[in-house]
Design a protein around this nucleic acid. Structure first.
Lengths: 219, 219
DNA sequence: GTGTATATCTCGGGG
DNA sequence: CCCCGAGGTATACAC
């Protein structure tokens, strides 16, 4: 990884045009060739960047970074304050726990936690506009489409409503009920769900994992 | 900006839990206190991070970064390879051209480009679930809600449909037609728009600016 | 490759 | 403060 601190101006021309007036910034060039220009604030997002794959044409006065789509990032260098390179090696990568996929796994294994008597037909049940998280049958044999979110918001209700509209056209499934499941469901989402005749269920991720919440912070 | 290259492991506990095994990484600490841990690849997104506002408690063996929401980022330091600090100053910031706001400006000035005979009532016309980009009247006096996107996709159709539902409850406006305007509209979005009785219009940003496309790439 | 959904999304604006 | 919407969203995953 190469870290250059330099007084520079930057121009991006591609999906839009963007210009950065002259200032001192960090230019980060990673092993895969991608480039990011950082200011001394503003979270992790760089002011300007180019993702790999891309090629850097470097001269005394400017770096021109070009990608196969024809986008260009031009860094006009006025003064180099520091220029160091470190070999970081390959990173073993990030392990995550608690994302939506895990919630889906847990609920697929225990659909009765969504609603007593529910049995799983299929995870990621396909429709022509995308997959439904869980397709189930209730104890009366009625089809139930379950949409799982970490946080239940309006978009999730709309998404499930779209699926229900499609699923309800299938005579083997009709009529299909909808349930939105989330760790927390926002009031606006509840209102819209009521409008669309969709049930809302809040679940506790830690309880589903069979652990008291406190132990989560220990691992 | 402080740049530390170190052999470290990292644990984030907050909205989810995430763990990074030991490896050599770049730790970036910005002037506003935010922290980002970068590997030597993987675009501009750090492996792990904490956004400002947050506080860093630094000991010989570990940094614990904590934010007001109770999330923690723990960086266990095994070996510091480099540790430098640069004063970058305040950045003058990014100027963008070609984003949705500009397209909205251009179309607000020339609604006839959306549809012959259209006149503007108001930009950012408020509803209780958010503002409609343009509210217009057609040559017959019928209200027309215009949603503007750079790219027309399913979400944009749903968004406009939600607005139309609300606007149609206003007796001063009813009945309200909907038009989705974008530089490019995806086939799926067209299908859903047809379902929702929403018209689709593609416009040319460069033509609207009154410039031949080629000149765009010059400045 | 296209299409769809997720994200510790980030970021900015308005009430 | 929350809510909402845009983003050069990026990224993963299924078809």
């Amino acid at each position: 990884m190469r870290l250059v601190v330099a007084r520079c101006s930057v121009d991006y021309v591609g999906r839009l045009s963007a210009h950065l007036p002259t200032a001192v910034r960090l230019i980060m060039v990673k092993a895969d060739g991608c480039v990011a220009v950082h200011a001394d604030g503003g979270a992790y997002k760089p002011l300007n960047w180019m993702v790999a794959p891309c090629a850097i044409a470097e001269s005394d006065t400017a770096w021109v970074v070009r990608n196969p789509k024809g986008e260009t990032l031009t860094i006009t260098i006025e003064e180099i304050i520091s220029d160091v390179t470190h070999d970081l090696g390959v990173d073993p990568g990030l392990r995550k726990d608690g994302v939506e996929a895990h919630l889906q796994e847990l609920l697929a294994a225990r659909p009765q936690e969504v609603e007593a008597g529910l049995t799983l037909v299929r995870r990621e049940y396909p429709t022509d506009i995308g997959p439904v998280d869980l397709l189930c049958r209730d104890r009366d044999g009625v089809a139930v489409a379950v949409e799982i979110k970490r946080r239940g918001e309006i978009d999730g209700v709309e998404q499930l409503a779209r699926y229900l509209e499609r699923l309800d056209r299938d005579p083997r499934l009709r009529p299909v009920r909808g349930v939105l499941v989330a760790q927390q469901i926002k009031p606006q989402a509840r209102v819209l769900a009521a409008d669309r005749n969709i049930r809302c269920v809040e679940v506790d991720y830690d309880a589903l994992r069979g652990l008291p919440s406190d132990e989560l912070t220990l691992f």
